[in-house]
């Protein structure tokens, strides 16, 4: 992920963007998560259309601004795709075992693992709060524009309160079972650099090489 971020965000990084998007789409397809494939492709297409085609077809100040912005945002799409794969496929225990193998400090490694476990809890709580608001007629663009602070308050307060409550059992039980203790944990199945990882590394290297050799569609613009 770090590699992708560094590569894509560097000024000349546009060269790597198509490769990054290909990688992200391939990873999403391997899960398989077709919805993410669709989202990635669609957002990349929109960014490309707004960033490269629109300013040419209809050149003025506004489209140029949008074009520049999209040229910038398309880099985020690539990095997001790879990051989302990481989040979707890693279980909390695997993540903390992996981070431990990299000698990441305990406080950070355990916090990240616990965060990964809390995300679905908070996400489902948020969805439920939104449902409840919808049933009470508290959701709507008009209400939001008229009382933005009140709308925010009505969402965040129950969301935070219910999430804290829902996380209480989980944290009590995990702490009692020694999570985050000062003892040195042992991993049941230690993480290994197996052949799928090697294949992935090779594929990334190949994509990077192709990006450098072949002319990039983004840098060349519209023929």
């Amino acid at each position: 992920m770090l590699v992708v971020s560094v590569a894509v965000m560097s000024p000349s990084g546009l060269v790597f963007v198509p490769a990054g998007i290909v990688l992200a789409v391939a990873l999403a397809a391997s899960e398989p998560s077709w919805s993410r494939v669709a989202v990635l492709l669609a957002s990349a297409a929109i960014m490309y259309a707004l960033g490269w085609i629109l300013p040419v077809v209809w050149p003025n100040g506004l489209t140029a601004t949008i074009g520049i912005a999209c040229g910038y945002l398309i880099r985020f799409v690539a990095a997001f795709g790879v990051g989302a794969h990481l989040v979707a496929t890693t279980s909390p225990t695997r993540l903390s075992a992996g981070l431990r193998a990299w000698r990441i400090p305990r406080a950070i490694a355990v916090t990240l693992a616990v965060m990964l476990r809390f995300f679905p809890v908070v996400a489902s709580t948020s969805a439920a709060v939104l449902d409840a608001m919808r049933l009470r007629g508290l959701v709507g663009a008009r209400g939001f524009v008229r009382h933005p602070v009140l709308s925010i308050e009505r969402f965040t307060v129950p969301m935070i309160a219910a999430s804290l409550r829902a996380s209480e059992d989980l944290s009590a039980s995990t702490i009692l079972r020694g999570l985050g203790s000062r003892r040195t944990p042992v991993t049941l199945d230690p993480p290994r650099f197996g052949w799928p990882d090697a294949a992935l590394a090779l594929a990334v290297a190949a994509l990077a090489a192709i990006s450098m050799v072949l002319p990039s569609p983004l840098a060349e613009g519209i023929p």
Partner: peptide, 16 residues
Amino acid sequence: FTDSVREETAFAMENL
């Protein structure tokens, strides 16, 4: 905390 029966059962022993 985990996703599978085996990981969950091992959780306390791993951490301790």
